[in-house]
Simulated assay, not measured.
Amino acid sequence: MSDFLDLGGQRALITSGTRGAGAATVDLFRKLGARVLTTALSFPAGSAADVSVVADLATSEGCSTVAEAVRRELGGVDIVVHMLGGSSAPAGGFSALSDGDWHKELNLNLFPAVRLDRELVPQMVAHGRGVIIHVSSIQRLLPLPEATTAYAAAKAALSTYSKSLSKEVSPRGVRVVRVSPGWIDTEASMELARRVASDAGTDIEGGRKIIMDSLGGIPIGRPSSPAEIANLVAFLASGRAASITGAEYVIDGGTVPTV
Score class of each variant (00 low, 15 high):
residue 56 D to C: 11
residue 89 A to G: 09
residue 111 F to V: 01
residue 120 L to N: 01
residue 72 R to M: 00
residue 72 R to A: 08
residue 210 I to F: 11
residue 162 S to P: 06
residue 191 E to T: 12
residue 132 I to L: 12
residue 89 A to I: 04
residue 183 W to C: 04
residue 151 Y to W: 09
residue 90 P to Y: 07
residue 248 E to S: 07
residue 98 S to R: 15
residue 139 Q to E: 15
residue 36 V to G: 03
residue 141 L to E: 13
residue 92 G to T: 08
residue 123 Q to Y: 03
residue 66 V to P: 00
residue 66 V to S: 06
residue 130 G to F: 00
residue 194 R to I: 05
residue 235 F to P: 02
residue 135 V to S: 10
residue 91 A to E: 12
residue 223 P to S: 13
residue 147 A to G: 09
residue 245 T to S: 15
residue 6 D to G: 07
residue 17 G to T: 02
residue 13 L to P: 00
residue 225 S to N: 01
residue 157 A to F: 05
residue 122 P to R: 07
residue 147 A to K: 12
residue 123 Q to R: 06
residue 80 V to T: 01
residue 224 S to I: 14
residue 208 R to E: 11
residue 53 V to D: 00
residue 195 R to D: 13
residue 157 A to C: 13
residue 245 T to M: 10
residue 237 A to N: 04
residue 108 L to V: 11
residue 49 A to H: 05
residue 75 G to Q: 12
residue 48 A to H: 06
residue 182 G to E: 13
residue 119 E to R: 03
residue 226 P to L: 08
residue 183 W to D: 08
residue 143 P to F: 06
residue 7 L to D: 07
residue 82 H to V: 00
residue 149 T to H: 02
residue 213 D to A: 13
residue 175 R to D: 07
residue 245 T to I: 12
residue 126 A to R: 15
residue 8 G to Q: 14
residue 158 L to C: 01
residue 35 R to N: 02
residue 234 A to P: 11
residue 220 I to C: 02
residue 5 L to W: 10
residue 4 F to I: 14
residue 48 A to D: 12
residue 256 V to S: 09
residue 128 G to M: 08
residue 154 A to V: 00
residue 170 S to P: 08
residue 50 D to I: 09
residue 188 A to K: 09
residue 214 S to F: 07
residue 54 V to D: 00
residue 84 L to F: 06
residue 102 W to I: 09
residue 256 V to N: 11
residue 138 I to C: 11
residue 255 T to K: 12
residue 64 S to G: 13
residue 177 V to N: 05
residue 6 D to Y: 05
residue 152 A to L: 02
residue 161 Y to E: 03
residue 4 F to E: 14
residue 204 I to H: 04
residue 33 G to P: 09
residue 21 A to T: 02
residue 109 N to K: 01
